[in-house]
């Protein structure tokens, strides 16, 4: 009987935890859902092994539910995962299971870890660890483990648009795989002696600074059409 009560207690605890994890995600999704569209100016700073890139300026456009575009005059390097796909993934509550984890303080914000496991067998995201602050219902860190891009860690900072859960700064840490450039393409015969060695698990950092947000001002679908 005691064992039965213990097991019942454990399962109830698990249920409460699952409820809390879902509730935390829902609190974030509710904020995100208040955004129908937005436009913002974006400054992109990238420090990536094997790539030397100047600071790029771009304009970012988003329209519910999955229209997303980054327009830059020059060449801008962005992370493949974590920019537009995570919120869409979290919004669809049926597509994953959420488990509440430990508490953690990130940049002086007390957060709770929510581990999100996708239900679909062929989901690109294998595991998402989302650190959510229960007090302001904002994500402060996400660690995405993906099939093709390895692990991507994203740190969030907020400024004026907390009510929409729109960050003012995102810092991406991405895995960089070994760079291969055939000599026929590069043909820099002078650089024989200066070849950079690849180290295992090299990381790249991309910092996105968002300014001049225009939220829910209405964006035309034509903006999202491919050039």
């Amino acid at each position: 009987m005691r064992i039965f009560l213990f097991l019942l207690g454990l399962s109830c605890l698990g249920y409460v935890n699952a409820q809390t994890a879902d509730a935390l995600i829902q609190s974030v999704v509710a904020k995100i859902n208040t955004v129908n569209d937005y436009k913002a100016e974006l400054q992109i700073k990238a420090a990536i092994p094997f790539i030397k890139v100047p600071i790029a300026d771009a304009t970012i456009y988003y329209k519910k539910t999955d229209k997303f575009k980054v327009e830059s005059k020059g060449i801008a390097i962005l992370p493949k995962q974590g920019l537009s796909d995570l919120t869409g993934f979290l919004s669809n509550t049926k597509s994953y299971s959420a488990i509440l984890g430990e508490d953690k303080t990130i940049n002086e914000h007390k957060t709770k870890l929510v581990s999100v496991l996708p239900s679909a067998e062929n989901s690109e995201i294998i595991l998402a660890k989302v650190y959510i602050s229960p007090t302001d219902a904002l994500i402060y860190r996400t660690v995405l483990t993906t099939k093709s891009s390895g692990t991507v860690s994203i740190d969030y900072e907020y400024n004026h648009n907390k009510q929409y859960a729109l960050p003012s700064k995102l810092t991406f840490n991405v895995d960089i795989k070994k760079f291969k450039m055939p000599k026929s393409v590069a043909s820099d015969i002078r650089n024989n002696d200066k070849k950079k060695k690849y180290k295992e698990n090299e990381k790249g950092t991309i910092v996105l600074v968002f300014t001049s947000y225009e939220v829910n001002k209405g964006l035309s679908d034509a903006i999202f059409k491919e050039d």
Binding site: I48, F50, I51, A56, A58, V70, E71, S72, K73, G74, I75, A76, I77, L78, P79, K80, Q81, S148, S149, G150, V152, V174, D175, I176, K177, K178, F179, K180, M181, V185, G204, I206
Partner: peptide, 15 residues
């Protein structure tokens, strides 16, 4: 072919 080494992790925007 040139950007393939990075395409799994990064996306190149712009012309």
């Amino acid at each position: 072919f040139v950007t393939a080494s990075f395409e799994q992790t990064l996306s190149f925007n712009g012309k």
